[in-house]
Design a binder for these strands. Structure first.
Lengths: 159, 159
DNA sequence: CTATCTGAGTTGCAATAGCGAACCTAGATG
DNA sequence: CATCTAGGTTCGCTATTGCAACTCAGATAG
């Protein structure tokens, strides 16, 4: 296992790094916890609040940020004989966070859960176990040593 | 595309959720940015500081947390004719965050970068483009509708 | 037609965390 | 013996968080 070579600067400048930008949007403990719940199907203010025990004022602000960022949307609903209320649904943009969250879950199960996985993923059609991996177009897994980073020079440090 | 069914509580209680635990460790904007740089090969205090423009006091605290959490380790080094100094290396635990970060990068390129990817991944041996995906043991990609969540009942809400 | 319940917030205040600048320290160099 | 460098710490100020209480709007009950 060779160490990655020492660098003094990242190959992609922070201004151009979409990953870095994404952290402005979701790089916050409560936001991440809200998204975790939302990906499971939680949608309502009081459900988020009760499940996470997040201060209502903070929850309110975080949900507003997520809506502004396009990750969630406010959608009115009404239950029989109740006045109209509001749910927070993931947009398509929000739903696609599923994959990074699954990758993160696998990491966390391995390193923080001692290898126990409270939740596993399975193919409904084939019954096979699913996992997140780095693969080529054919589905062949790449191993760590075989990965090459290709940097688009337009996005490097000083342009 | 059917909506995920409404839930009032997540299927995994927060106490048992390793994903939720991981957010205590890395669910913070600066921590995430530090890890991004570290995965590229940045290791030194002043390099992190200059690249990220993070307050030195905050950087100091975050690095200490990462070391305490087992994600990074302090390692002494000396350059010729310089006194011994310290670098922050990712441990194996830290390195394996690469996959979640690659998944997150792909998400961010798609939704925040308008589809432009400053950085792409390629297989050194085959030259093929690599991407993060949810696959079965054979490398067959699963599509969204075909994913089943299997919950270990021991970790549900009330035990 | 007033009183109560419920879900979805807002408000106010104290405690905490973050920010930026200045300072410290230990050896190597001029 | 003054300066430089890398890796920090300290300090005062501001911004954000956490918590409890309050509001608001409609539906239902008495």
């Amino acid at each position: 296992m060779t160490d990655t070579p020492l660098l003094h600067r990242s190959p992609i400048s922070r201004r151009h790094c979409n990953l870095a930008k994404s952290f402005d949007l979701i790089g916050d403990r409560w936001t991440l916890l809200i998204l975790r719940s939302a990906l499971y199907g939680v949608r309502r203010f009081d459900d988020f609040q009760a499940e996470l025990d997040v201060p209502r004022s903070v929850l309110s602000k975080r949900l507003a940020n997520l809506v502004e960022g396009g990750i969630m949307e406010r959608r009115p609903y009404s239950e029989q004989g109740q006045r109209a209320r509001v749910e927070y649904h993931l947009t398509r943009m929000g739903e696609t966070l599923g994959l990074p969250f699954m990758a993160m879950t696998a990491w966390a199960d391995r390193w923080l859960g001692g290898g126990t996985s409270p939740l596993t993923l399975r193919s409904r059609s084939t019954g096979r176990k699913l996992s997140v991996a780095l693969v080529d177009e054919r589905g062949k897994r790449a191993d760590r040593e075989d990965i090459e980073l290709v940097v688009d020079a337009r996005f490097s440090e000083k342009k």
